[in-house]
Computed example of a mutant assay.
Amino acid sequence: MLTTAFTETFGVRHPIVQGGMQWVGRAELVAAVANAGALGMLTALTQPTPDDLAREISRTRELTDQPFGVNLTILPTITPPPYDEYRNVIIDCGVKVVETAGSSPAPHLPHFHSAGIKVLHKCTSVRHAVKAQALGVDGISIDGFECAGHPGEDDVPGLVLIAAAAERISIPMIASGGFADARGLVAALALGADGINMGTRFMCTDESPIHRNIKDAIVAASEVDTELIFRSLRNTARVARNSVSQEVVEILSSGGKFEDVRDLVAGVRGRAVFDSGDPEAGIWTAGTVQGLIHDIPTVGELVERIVTEAEALIAGRLAGLLDPVSA
Rank of each mutant, 00 (worst) to 15 (best):
I251N: 00
N242E: 07
A175C: 10
I171D: 07
R241N: 10
L189R: 08
E259Q: 07
F258W: 03
G256P: 05
I196V: 15
D263G: 12
E250Y: 10
A221E: 07
A221N: 05
T236F: 11
A272Q: 15
V249L: 01
V186P: 02
N235S: 05
R238K: 08
S276G: 04
A182C: 09
P209L: 04
D194N: 12
G270I: 14
E259I: 02
S222D: 15
R271Q: 15
H211P: 03
A240F: 14
G192N: 11
A240H: 10
R231W: 02
R231I: 10
D194P: 03
G195P: 07
Q290Y: 14
R262Q: 15
G255T: 11
T236W: 12
I169E: 06
T285C: 15
V273D: 08
L185A: 09
I283M: 02
G192T: 12
I169P: 08
E280P: 11
D263N: 04
P209V: 04
L233N: 05
F202V: 11
A175L: 05
R183C: 10
F258R: 01
L292C: 10
S245W: 14
L252M: 05
E247S: 08
D181K: 09
R238M: 09
S276H: 10
R269I: 12
G177P: 01
I283Y: 10
A281L: 12
S170K: 13
M198E: 13
S245H: 11
F230L: 09
A175N: 01
G199L: 07
Q246P: 06
G277C: 09
R201Y: 03
L252S: 01
G270K: 04
C204T: 14
R271L: 12
V248Q: 07
E207T: 00
A221H: 04
A182G: 07
V265H: 04
G291K: 09
V261P: 02
G267V: 14
G184I: 04
S208D: 11
V265P: 04
L191K: 00
S254P: 03
D181F: 11
G291C: 08
H211R: 00
N213G: 09
A281W: 12
T226G: 02
R212Q: 11
D216G: 03
I171W: 01
T205E: 06
R231C: 02
K215G: 00
S254A: 15
H211M: 04
E250C: 01
A217W: 04
A190W: 01
A182Q: 13
V265Y: 06
L264I: 13
A190C: 02
E250A: 15
K215P: 07
A281Q: 05
N197Q: 14
G291F: 06
L189T: 00
M198R: 06
G178L: 10
S245P: 12
S243I: 02
D194T: 08
F179L: 05
R241M: 12
F258D: 00
E247P: 03
E259R: 04
V249M: 08
V261G: 04
A190R: 03
L189S: 02
V289M: 13
D278M: 09
E280I: 06
I174A: 00
K215H: 09
N242Y: 13
D206R: 15
A193H: 07
E259M: 01
R183Y: 05
R262F: 00
S170C: 01
V249Q: 09
T205N: 06
V268W: 05
R271P: 08
T200A: 03
I218T: 00
N242R: 13
D275N: 11
A180Q: 03
D278L: 11
